[in-house]
Amino acid sequence: MSATATPTTGPRGPGSARSAALTTPACRLLALARAELTLLGRAKGTLFAALFVPLVVPFTMKSTVKNMDLDGTGLSMGSVLLPSAIAFSLLFAVYSALVSVYAARREELVLKRLRTGEVRDVEILAGAALPSVAIGLVQSLVLMGMCAALLDVGTPGAAHYVVLGLLLGLVMFPLLAAVTSIVSRSVESAQVMVMPLLFASLLGSGATLPLEVMPDKLASVCELLPLSPVIALIRGGWTGELGAGEGLRAILIAVAWIALGVFAVKRWFRWEPRR
């Protein structure tokens, strides 16, 4: 691609004398993320749900967990609650917030308008996701700190699994949000469309009920849900009891969901509202 804008033909405005410095992906990404963060700050409802739910709700489950029969599962109060807390962060601060963001930007034709410019498609989606992903990351770190301080979970036995689990989750849920937004015609419908994955994840991925206490057959199906490998890696990484085989299996399931998400977004993502 030639960077010189054919100054030989036709007189152009004084602006054409300026060096034609091209924008960089990082610059564009930050510009979009900054605008998106401003918008998030003005959407008080979304902001409250994103910040408050993951930091408070998991701890209301404390009494339920106390009554669970955890003997023989190798789990403790802390190792049940910590992954749950991170799950709430991924589901509410990242996934469900972003489905609304994508639906709203599409509805207002922001996505279409951005596509007329130099921003690439992946930058548009990533830029919009960046603030939510950052919140999810910071929240998860804070939650780990809170659990360490309040629930005596100790230090992770296999930290690399914890890190990997969190990173996979932070990539997977924005993608799943983009996919969910495909079927969300408006911000209102987005709030309904997030329900299936939200419920399936909360009930079946070990976020509220560890897979270890489920019947084996049900557990082996639930292992395949998108959130399950994330929880398995974080919980197993923290207790240090995740074997290499189990770890690899969880990573593969997570990567498969990410690949599926990328495929679906490339194939079906809508950049403008249906008419």
Partner: peptide, 26 residues
């Protein structure tokens, strides 16, 4: 310039312009 819209309604004019400028070469 599209036939209609394309800017987030909750951003100010300055914020919109800054976002767009940072996404545009030169």
């Amino acid at each position: 310039m599209l036939q209609e819209g394309g800017f987030p309604s909750e951003l100010t004019v300055d914020e919109t312009a800054r976002m767009w400028a940072n996404c545009t070469s030169g």
